[in-house]
Design a protein around this nucleic acid. Sequence first.
RNA 1: GUCCCCAUCGUCUAGAGGCCUAGGACAUUGCCUUUUCACGGCAGUAACCGGGGUUCGACUCCCCGUGGGGACGCCA
Length: 486
Amino acid sequence: MNALPVRVRFAPSPTGFLHIGGVRTALFNYLYARQHQGKFLLRIEDTDTDRSEQRFTDDILSSLKWLGMGADEPILYQSKRLPIYQASAEDLITRGLAYRCTCTEAEVEAAREQMIKDGKKPMYARTCREKNLPAGNRPYAIRAKFPLTGVTSFRDLIRGEISFPNEDLDDFVMIRSNGVPTYNFVVVVDDIEMKISHVIRGDDHINNTPKQIFLYEALKAHKPIFAHLPMILGQDKKKLSKRNGETSTNAYREQGYLPEALLNFLVRLGWSHGDQELFTMEEMIGLFNLENVQVSGAVFNTEKLLWIAGEHLRRADPTRLIQIIKEDFSKSFSAASFSALDTTYALSLIPHLQPKVKLLPELAGQLDPLLDPGVRAVDASSLKWNRDESIKAKIKEAILSIKGEFQAKLSGSSSEILASCGVDHAVVDSVFRATCERFGLKLGELTQPLRLFITGHPSASIGLFDLLPLMPWKTVSERIEACLKA
RNA sequence: GUCCCCAUCGUCUAGAGGCCUAGGACAUUGCCUUUUCACGGCAGUAACCGGGGUUCGACUCCCCGUGGGGACGCCA
């Protein structure tokens, strides 16, 4: 349909850590680019020299990398292009589309307050508009000479026609008196420079759009297609911010969300494809469309995010999970457990844990006592067998019998894991049930203490019958011994 | 205050005039399953902001009201 090559961009300003709302904006841009075989570009909007910091740029870039959304072309830094903006603004002055302004902040502010009193939209009083101040009069700001009459309108891909009476629009500052350009100006200069075809951004920018359209015309450039995304809201229905939710992307990484889970959650905030809730990146790219983007804001629902996290975790490749855990969650492990992460034993445990946990730290916490080669200290005080000494003795007898039975299965083998001697969940199950019958015990009576000691965890997620075949027998038998001494 | 945008279950949403006694998901409630923790299965509670039009017919279209949000910086 559109012959123009799709070129979109994500343009964060490095005045804070990558905002989760920014991630969704980036995602929609990214998906749109991928789907249309276009380019996804990155621009760092660091014209606010007071608030921009290198560490925030680093954070934004590393977070985007974590999410798998890298730029297709070199990143543009606005701070490196200052002379270009200045020259462009001066050119606009000579063409009568901008003017120099020597008003002080105090003067501008006073006029603004007066306008609020008069029930008008507060804006610059256009004091210097017709003064034709010369270039020598430093310091001066450069303001856009916005038309006083008429209407500026555009067709938003998501919302349709939006229009603004020009009289409500401000002669906004393009270049500050310190020579540094402002957002509304650089956005346009750079979007032209970068040949951006579609501007997909938050709807808090709707009000900026007419100003930017004026600039496109002033700079004799084709304006891009605009698509304004609904805001992400906090529980209080206000724009998501530090005040009403966790906004920094790396906080979610630290909490152990998989990047694809975060992206899946974010894509469903404002966009849908029928009843489908779960998407892989490939599906998102294939199915995404701006037409199905919602127009109203969406509350950031942490519970649903957690559910999606679990769904993605269980679908993830175990080898990859171990890799991520090693990189990001080493703190959850004892030294011995951590080094055991590279064993096939660790790998064999993961599939049994995946359906039962939602976040990476949970997985790490479950893994740690299972990988630990030694005996784990556990609190046996709440075990039911404490209520009756004679049953306790009988249970221990049964446990000893079970231990012997498994030991026998290993005797002819050089392996020290039961699984390689043909013991699987079903075999363990039948051994346990037969033993119970022989000793007149209930299955639960037998498994409860064993479970506690062998998993080494008061609320282990893995099934005992799944664990026994996999765990090195040395560890199993040591832990059974500890159980018998309890 | 002015301008702009928006309005379906608690939340994310489906719905493009009859398919709607409004569907799905998360959360929640109950039951089932169960060696544990989960997962899972089944069932339940729960919504079209209000008022006018248009139409044979409106959740869907129009207008008004109300409510909510956003923007009004020499921040981005």
